[in-house]
Amino acid sequence: MNVDEAKVILIEVIESALEGKATVSEDMQLIGGDTLLDSMKLVEVCLALEDIADERGFEFIWNSEAAMSKSRSMFRTVTTLAEEFSSQSEG
């Protein structure tokens, strides 16, 4: 899965988690002060990505130490998460 496809999937998942109350952009912040996603919504997003990964035959690992570190985290923005999701899909 390339990054663009991953972005489409991710934006759809996040908009679903936000119940359509906001439009999601590629540079939207996922963690930190200005994010629209609280911690439990982020968990919902991760579970949805886990399910999608499962359907596509790979395991999406999101709760590692690197993932949770704000400075290095895959959760900084929609783009960084999509890049990680794409990368993990390619093993």
Binding site: V43, E44, L47, E50, D51, N63
Partner: peptide, 10 residues
Amino acid sequence: CQLFAPILLR
């Protein structure tokens, strides 16, 4: 709790 939670959360 951590590792079984995703099942119950879903």
